[in-house]
Design a protein around this nucleic acid. Structure first.
Lengths: 334, 334
DNA sequence: CTGTTAGCGCCTTCAC
DNA sequence: GTGAAGGCGCTAACAG
């Protein structure tokens, strides 16, 4: 493996000059530049990133910490991140934690070991205090989740208002008894979606019935079980709003399982708009998050933060929209 | 950010000693070891990986090149890779190429720049010759795809025999007219699955009818279109074997779209066993690939190759199995 | 058991 | 416009 000095010798110049043409910086005469380039080609020279990184004390790498890479929601976010990263010559290190807080912290530590220049937390299991503390020391951006009142860079949608929009939609379809399946309530976005649901009811003068609210954990099976509890009610809902698509799918299964129709008997709405939402029958009406864009935006903010660590922290709220498909039918009169 | 020399000074020893306790190597008296550890803790010292990497001329990083990270099939493989990587203190760099050959080559180049110690190609768009050439120079393992007669480390399932098993199954259910939707035929695994289908027919004395074979491109929509062509036949098949789950889903949609039942009127089988296969209705009978295990195995082989580049190349064939769900019904007499 | 020292390959002042 | 030289922080001989 040829190194810079080999190129320098072959081209009859010093390593400094080679370094200059490599960086495209400084003044190098056209002539020597060509000589050097010829030598590089002849030796098939590739600069050693290990050496460069040490010299510049940067790794040109960022780490993306996610709870589970097999969750399709996250992969779209990652694609957005990687796209921007690539454009700026950054590499993406994968930090799949398997929902383990310890692993999450370990990946964050990569920055302190200089193996990464920044970190993106796609949702965070670590405590808010800890994250804030870490964010003081290293470039860090949180995507999809947010931490209340924190001086922290975050990119999310507005979970409250988007949930409220779902209720609006359901009410406009004539529903007045709307069930809600929340995510784990220790997660802020779950609470926000619940909040949007509640304020949506209030807005339309509907009474809140706590038996209509069930807590799930974002899995299909928890959606199935929660939906069953809803169906067991003396007066079951005519529509169910699940806090993510997986639980909405579980809900649909539960409803069909009892011989009812979706949306004929009960309407269902999901959240996230993952690919399965278009495949399931009936196709799911759901809140579409701009996943790819969230990734892109997050990475752009991180890049700024890396270049200028004192950049003001900001919370970017990206627009989402309700995608109306089949699972709650179309406007009609009940 | 404290460095080694700071720790050394505080502990009153030399950097060599600090390095030794860090590596857990060499002989260090219990006493000095404790002194050093205390100093490290006090300074909150983290060794600088950049420096270590340069010194040892290794990056402790491997790059996983995949065509598209939003494909659920790949994410399970990646999880397997990452698990083993983590156990061995390796990091995983994400190389999502977006199906671009140029990007694929660029990621492979990371090794020559010493930014990675090895590469895993999860499927390969680059030409076999090129890959072979590269594999001569750098530690490289190919997963899920294989290159015929090549001296190359690969981890796959047996696509031929598994496809044949599908035909066996379908025949045992009484089907004698079986349609086949292949993947793009410039990809070896597509050809292998086709080969298995053909030999399966032959084995059971069924004639091969080329109109029953349609080429798709592994997408849902191509499955839909291919299935439609099959359904347009004067004598349509009573069963359709699609070369992956996405196309099987497209097939189911096409069949339902014409008012037929699955499996009542036409049976459908897929390949891969991705999560959607369990969610779709009817749940898909499909060939289950050990995706996670493929990832694990691939990473283990790569690790060997990195440690000892002259390791004999090997082609590991992992066992797959047919998962019988609802989409082709259960044994019955026609 | 512990310290000294010479690099790993590159970038970047500082001279000229 | 070009060269010389000093590190970046760490590890691995080699001494002692």
């Amino acid at each position: 493996m040829a190194k810079m000095i080999d190129v320098a010798k072959l081209a009859g110049v010093s390593v400094a000059t080679v370094s200059r043409v490599l960086a495209g910086s400084g003044k190098v005469s056209k002539n020597t530049k060509e000589k050097v380039e010829r030598a590089m080609k002849e030796l098939n020279y590739k600069p050693n990133k290990l050496a460069r990184n040490l010299r510049k004390l940067e790794s040109k790498t960022i780490v993306v910490v996610i709870p589970d890479i097999s969750n399709p929601f996250f992969t779209d976010v990652i694609r957005g991140i990687q796209q921007v990263a690539q454009q700026h010559d950054y590499y993406v290190l994968l930090g799949d934690t398997g929902n383990d807080v310890k692993a999450e912290l370990d990946f964050i530590d990569l920055i302190k070991e200089r193996a990464a220049d920044g970190v993106i937390l796609v949702t965070a299991r670590t405590s808010p205090e800890k994250i804030l503390e870490i964010a003081q020391e290293v470039p860090l951006v949180v995507a999809c989740e947010y931490i209340k009142g924190a001086h922290l860079s975050m990119v999310t949608i507005d979970n409250v208002s988007s949930s409220q929009k779902v209720v609006d939609h359901l009410v406009s379809l004539g529903h007045r008894r709307i069930g809600f399946i929340s995510g784990p309530l220790n997660v802020i976005i779950s609470r926000d979606r619940l909040k949007g649901y509640v304020s949506g009811l209030k807005k339309h003068g509907l009474e809140q019935d706590s038996s209509l609210i069930q807590e799930g954990d974002f899995t299909i099976s928890s959606g199935f079980e929660s939906a069953n509890r809803l169906l067991d009610l003396a007066e079951p809902p005519t529509a169910v709003f699940a806090s993510n698509d997986e639980m909405a799918i579980g809900t649909i299964k539960a409803i069909k399982n009892r011989g009812f129709q979706v949306p004929g008997d009960i309407a269902v709405v999901g959240f996230d708009d993952i690919q399965i939402a278009t495949v399931i029958e009936p196709a799911l009406t759901t809140v579409s998050q701009p996943k790819f864009e969230i990734g892109r935006c997050t990475m752009e903010i991180l890049l700024e933060l890396i270049q200028n660590p004192s950049t003001r922290q900001e919370h970017v709220v990206l627009p989402e929209h309700l995608v109306i498909r089949e699972s709650c039918g179309y406007p009609l009169v009940r």
